[in-house]
């Protein structure tokens, strides 16, 4: 079966006046099947957002991507010239409060999207949009259609944003920290909504988050990113129950939910390396409790630790 999305050895470097300045994404390989929810997890600066932007063809100025991105087996241009975004691929952003244009009604904004990707009359477009407002569980769709962003709550706006993302029946939905800006109860509703919509429409989901709680709730598979690489990947259950990479273990250990009252919170010491140019050996070794001399010499690739479960660590099994 062909994957819906296949990212093959994606690299993103930054160039200034012909000089390489950084390489925040250093060879990511990842795939999403139709109907599958794949989580990309990692700290700030691990390259997860750049990966999403590369899929959308929206890399910032000065970014030099290489590798291949295939959608339904078709290679996508990395320079953003493709017309897949907003159509075959949609995205839902972190902060619904700032993601909508404040001086246009939601209806106007959505009509622009429909007009760009579908041949549809005004009335048909309006009906189409109202239909999706209902799909995402927004009450009084007509009122929402006429509302300005500041007239709605964050939860309602995020539902509206999801409706906008669904307007062109995308095959792939990218969710960039979709619940981080929301209250916990609202966040849970939004995640449930996404899963039910996935069941109804069958799109694949690429979920970007640093929240392992969110991953546990909705993801089928996860990829843990560190310093621009996948360091561990596998079925969500397996990775969360039996993490093989010391970084994944550290992330899980740092969850406040695992915290024993009276004990200091576990944290991974140190910080993500700022510049990834000229990095040798394992990028995590400086912060790794299990690091040995050999970690400075070889940069481990992904290797199976269990069926479908891979980790990039020479001490994957060690405790």
């Amino acid at each position: 079966m062909t994957d819906l999305l296949h990212i093959d050895d994606l690299e993103v470097a930054f160039q200034e006046r012909g000089m390489l300045t950084n390489r925040p994404v250093r060879g990511i390989t990842l795939s999403v099947a139709p109907g599958e929810v794949v989580g990309i997890v990692g700290e700030t600066g691990c390259g997860k957002s750049l990966t999403a932007l590369a899929v959308l063809g929206l890399l910032p100025k000065g970014a030099v991507p290489s590798g291949r991105i295939l959608l339904d087996g078709v290679v996508q241009p990395l320079d953003g010239s493709g017309s897949a975004r907003g159509d075959v691929i949609s995205i839902v952003f972190q902060n619904p409060g700032t993601a909508f244009n404040p001086v246009f009604t939601l209806g106007r904004q959505m009509r622009d999207v429909v007009a760009r990707h579908r041949r549809m009359g005004r009335a048909a477009a309006t009906a189409h949009i109202l239909h999706y407002f209902e799909q995402v569980g927004l009450p009084e769709p007509e009122r929402i259609f006429r509302s300005y962003p500041h007239e709605l709550s964050g939860g309602m706006l995020q539902r509206a944003m999801i409706a906008m993302a669904l307007l062109c029946e995308p095959r792939l939905l990218i969710l960039d920290e979709p619940t981080t800006a929301l209250d916990v109860t609202i966040a849970k509703q939004i995640l449930e909504l996404i899963l039910s919509l996935r069941d109804r429409f069958g799109f694949g989901v690429l979920l970007i988050t640093h929240n392992l709680g969110v991953v546990r709730e909705v993801c089928d598979r996860i990829a843990v990113l560190y310093a621009g690489r996948v360091v561990e990947t596998g079925p969500a259950d397996a990775v969360l129950k039996a993490p093989a990479h010391p970084y994944t273990r550290g992330l899980l250990g740092a969850l406040p939910a695992r915290h024993v009252p009276g004990q200091p919170l576990d944290a991974i010491r140190g910080a993500v390396p700022g510049n990834l140019l000229g990095l040798t050996g394992c990028s995590f070794r400086e912060r790794c409790p299990l690091a040995i001399d050999r970690c400075g010499e070889i940069d481990p690739g992904l290797a199976p630790v269990a069926p479908l479960h891979e980790a990039a660590c020479i001490r994957a099994g060690a405790r």
Binding site: R85, G86, D87, N101, D112, V113, R116
Partner: peptide, 16 residues
């Protein structure tokens, strides 16, 4: 601003 990025993420044309 974020909403300008949203517009390009939904494929809207630069002129618009």
């Amino acid at each position: 601003q974020d909403y300008v990025f949203t517009a390009s993420a939904f494929g809207l044309r630069d002129g618009l």
